Amino acid sequence: MRVKAEFLDSFESYLRENLPSVEGFHPHFSKAYQEIILAGGKRFRPLLLLSVVHTCAPSLMKNAYPVALGLEMLHTYSLIHDDLPAMDDADLRRGETTLHVAYDEVTAILVGDALNTDAFCQISQAPLSAETRIELVQALAQNGGSGGMVIGQAIDCEFEDKRLSQKELEFLHTNKTARLIAASLLMGAIICDLDAKSRDNIYSFGLKLGLLFQIQDDIIDATSSAEAEGKPTGNDEHKNSFVNLLGLEEAIQYKEDFIKSLNDELNTLDKKLADELDHIVKEYFNG
Rank of each mutant, 00 (worst) to 15 (best):
Ala5Ile: 07
Glu6Cys: 09
Asp9Gln: 11
Asp9Met: 10
Glu17Ile: 08
Pro20Ser: 07
Ser21Val: 09
Gly24Gln: 08
His26Phe: 07
His26Leu: 12
Pro27His: 07
Ala32Met: 12
Tyr33Thr: 03
Glu35Arg: 14
Gly40His: 07
Gly41Glu: 03
Lys42Thr: 11
Arg45Thr: 07
Leu47Phe: 08
Leu48Cys: 03
Leu49Arg: 10
Leu50Cys: 07
Leu50Lys: 03
Val53His: 12
Thr55Lys: 09
Ala57Phe: 09
Ala57Tyr: 13
Ser59His: 11
Leu60Gly: 03
Met61Asp: 02
Leu69Thr: 06
Leu69Glu: 09
Leu69Met: 15
Gly70Val: 14
Glu72His: 09
Leu74Thr: 05
Thr76Tyr: 11
Thr76Gly: 15
Tyr77Gly: 02
Ser78Thr: 15
His81Gly: 12
His81Leu: 08
Asp83Arg: 15
Pro85Lys: 13
Ala86Arg: 13
Asp89Leu: 15
Arg93Pro: 00
Gly95Leu: 13
Thr97Val: 07
Thr97Met: 13
His100Pro: 01
Asp104Cys: 00
Val106Leu: 02
Ala108Arg: 01
Phe120Trp: 04
Phe120Tyr: 07
Gln122Ala: 13
Ile123Met: 00
Ser124Gln: 08
Ile134Cys: 10
Val137His: 02
Gly144Phe: 06
Met149Phe: 08
Cys157Tyr: 01
Cys157Met: 15
Arg163Met: 09
Thr174Leu: 11
Asn175Cys: 12
Asn175Trp: 00
Lys176Asn: 07
Leu180Cys: 05
Leu194Asn: 11
Leu194Glu: 14
Ala196Thr: 11
Asp200Ala: 14
Ile202His: 03
Tyr203Val: 00
Gly210Thr: 05
Leu211Arg: 09
Leu211Asn: 13
Gln214Tyr: 05
Gln216Tyr: 05
Ile220Cys: 06
Ala226Val: 06
Glu229Pro: 01
Lys231Ser: 03
Pro232Ala: 13
Asn235Leu: 00
Glu237Cys: 03
Asn240Ile: 05
Phe242Asn: 01
Val243Pro: 01
Leu245Glu: 09
Gly247Arg: 07
Leu248Asn: 12
Glu249Thr: 12
Glu249Met: 15
Ile252Lys: 15
Leu266His: 06
Asn267Tyr: 02
Asp270Met: 01
Glu276Gln: 10
Tyr284Asp: 10
